[in-house]
């Protein structure tokens, strides 16, 4: 019942923005177009029947070489929770590889700050109007986006590129036979 309410509420207001909506093993998922995400999120947050006041998680998915065809290569996923009504909702926003831009939801949920920074450094997705969009975990001069499927697991050379320190003093004694 509650599931239907959530779907109906969004559909009523933003019917052209919805690509798909389904329920999978109890998880309610709504797939959205990328242009008006901020507006819809604001609605979900402020509407008195939904009141999704908590952004539990924000991450992205790379669908490169995924077994089932997907509309676009990347999807940004929002996990929302409503403390008032105990609703859970997953929002999926597909974004094409050529234009990796999306509006930041920092203005609604402050917790999006670090989550968006992490998504930015790991997938290279830019969040417009984010107050401080720079790398969170990786070194600042790191090249590449490690959580993309086409990034080699062993990296592209960063871990091998450190200065090599030798002993400042002669250490021939180390080669002596022990005992």
């Amino acid at each position: 019942m509650a599931d239907q309410l959530i779907f109906d509420k969004i559909k009523e207001k933003f019917s052209d923005e919805i690509l798909d909506s389904y329920e999978f093993r109890g998880d309610k998922v709504v797939c959205l177009k990328k242009d008006n995400v901020l507006e819809i999120m604001e609605f979900l947050n402020t509407d008195s029947d939904l009141h999704f006041d908590f952004l539990a998680d924000l991450t992205a998915i790379d669908y490169l070489e995924y077994s089932e065809p997907q509309p676009e290569r990347f999807a940004v996923v929002y996990q929302l929770y409503s403390h008032e009504f105990k609703y859970e909702l997953t929002i999926k926003v597909y974004i094409p590889e050529e234009d990796l831009h999306l509006d930041s939801v920092y203005s609604i949920w402050k917790t999006a700050d670090w989550l968006e920074r992490e998504t930015y450094e790991m997938f290279g997705i830019h969040f417009r109007h984010h107050p401080n969009l720079k790398k969170l975990l990786l070194p600042e001069d790191f090249k590449g986006f490690p959580e993309r499927k086409d990034f080699p697991v062993k990296g592209i050379g960063y871990r091998e590129n450190f200065p090599i320190y030798s002993r400042p003093f002669d250490n021939n004694y180390l080669r002596k036979e022990e005992d």
Binding site: P146, P152, R159, E160, F162, I164, Y165
Partner: peptide, 17 residues
């Protein structure tokens, strides 16, 4: 941990006894 973020042995960069 043979991954992009992990040093594959500190002895590559500093001497180890």
């Amino acid at each position: 941990f043979d991954t992009y973020s992990m040093i594959q042995g500190v002895d590559q960069f500093i001497p180890v006894d």
